[in-house]
Design a protein around this nucleic acid. Structure first.
Length: 418
RNA sequence: CGGGCCGUAGUAUACCGGUAGUACACCUGCUUUGGGAGCAGGUAGACUGGGUUCGAUUCCCAGCGGCCCGACCA
């Protein structure tokens, strides 16, 4: 798109009420807007990144058999009363309201109960299992304290997948498949080398769970990493018993702060039993379904990428999720030939299916370069009188800053090989 | 929820118990055009309510809002 038409503006300084790097950069670059504490609007550039992240996740979830749905954010209390989680003593982060017609309503903070109930309508036989259902859906959590920019908010989209299996063995098999899918997702987001599958407590659901923790000082968690096996243990279960069971040696573990970018955990029959989600086995007996839950917060993942991959000039997006593949920076200074050349390149690339942000604004070079660095598009292509006379475009990688002078066909080859 | 800090133009900041200043942004004009240009002119501001005072943006109290530390966190 033409940058002159983009309604958002960059700004030189971060607002004083944002301390976290992710929020400072995302706001300065016009990717997000803070609506209130713990609630951020996604602007055009930010939404592009968020959508790209969700596309990566969606692809991997589909690949392991996930079926996408979209549940309601409004929650009917009855089903939560069955599981005991309507109670504010049990779940203290509910946003609740009242219906004009009478009665209560909740704003979803998670979706186990309604989905389990929903599945009772569709699962009745061992032939109906296993099934995997997921969604990208807004969660509302009335956190006492929102913090760290988009890392911990009161309203956020979550990818939550739920598995429905006949047996523990069948559940376990999918659990590992999903863990592998998560590894692929974080690799594709460009944070794989710093993300560790981390053994953690099971909380109220089960003995254990697995978190995917990305090493960063911006994180809230503390983990102990075994680099050689690329796994870690959360501080909350860091004890001799856990280390023994995992075969980990304390002397090889490194302590680090980390961000929980994903988690997977067994639910067993905690919800299927009370909500009556059962199937008939081959002997005709009624058996509760074995469930699991698998979450990733796309916005938190986005914030994590910013925290990890930025530099002093701005953000540095990996090609997999960048808002645009190319930042076409026109330095025409009123030269119509240069503008025409930039427009020509824009059309050629766009028609080839390459997403281009064309900085066609009438600004000085310095400001354009600064904006370009801040926005963090992976490849900058400069068109100017200089490049016109050289007969090649000046192409600079945001990451690393390597510059090459390429013809249009070389540029296209470079982009399609990504 | 405990503790701390903070609310001044769109943004970032300054000073002050007595006409609120600067930078960036924005508007007009001219010049400039490869790393956030220059000159001239212009628009725009004290969170809300109460108290003290001749006079409060400034001091006091309350509310609202924001950030940080802790607690909490499938």
């Amino acid at each position: 798109m033409r940058q002159s038409q983009l309604f958002t503006k960059t700004r030189r300084e971060a607002p004083k009420d944002e301390v976290s790097k992710n929020a400072q950069l995302l706001i300065r670059a016009g990717y997000i807007h803070k609506e209130m504490a713990g609630a951020y609007t996604f602007l055009p550039l930010g939404l592009r990144v968020l959508n790209n992240i969700m596309a990566v996740i969606r692809g991997e979830m589909n690949a392991i058999g996930g079926q996408e749905i979209s549940m309601t954010a409004l929650q009917e209390p009855e089903v939560w009363k069955v599981s005991g989680r309507w109670n504010d003593e049990v779940v203290d982060i509910w946003f609740k309201s009242e219906l004009k017609a009478g009665g209560e309503v909740g704003f979803a903070n998670t979706h186990e109960e309604p989905l389990t109930r929903l599945l009772t309508q569709h699962i009745s036989s061992h032939k109906d299992l296993p099934r995997y259902v997921y969604q990208f859906q807004t969660k509302f959590r009335n956190e006492l304290r929102a913090k760290s920019g988009i890392m911990r908010t009161r309203e956020f989209i979550m990818k939550d997948l739920y598995s429905f299996s006949k047996t523990q063995e069948e559940f376990r098999e999918f659990y590992e498949q999903c863990a592998e899918a998560y590894v692929r997702i974080f690799n594709r987001l460009g944070i794989g080398d710093k993300t560790f599958r981390t053994f953690a407590s099971g909380g109220s659901f089960s003995k254990f769970s697995d978190e995917f923790q990305t090493v960063s000082d911006a994180g809230e968690d503390t983990i102990y990493i075994d680099e050689r096996r690329h796994i870690a243990v959360n501080k909350e279960v860091y004890n001799d018993e856990t280390l023994d069971s995992l075969g980990l040696d304390k002397t090889y573990l490194r302590e680090a702060k980390s961000i929980e970018v994903g988690n997977i955990f067994p639910l067993g029959t905690k919800y299927s039993a009370p909500l009556g989600l059962t199937y008939k086995n081959e002997a005709g007996e009624s058996v509760p379904v074995v469930m699991g839950s698998y979450g990733i917060g796309p916005a938190r993942a986005m914030g994590t990428v910013v925290e990890l991959l930025c530099d002093e000039k701005g953000m540095v997006w990996p090609e997999s999720i960048a808002p645009f593949a190319v930042h076409l920076v026109e330095l025409s200074g009123g030269n119509k030939e240069v503008s025409a050349e930039a427009g020509e390149l824009y059309r050629t690339l766009t028609e080839a299916g390459i997403e281009v942000l064309w900085d066609d604004r009438d600004l000085r070079a310095g400001e354009k370069f600064s904006d370009s660095d801040l926005l963090g598009v992976p490849l900058r292509v400069v068109v100017s009188e200089k490049t016109l006379s050289e007969g090649a475009f000046e192409c600079t990688e945001r990451k690393g800053g390597k510059t090459q002078h390429l013809s249009i066909s070389e540029l296209q080859t470079r982009l399609t090989h990504v």
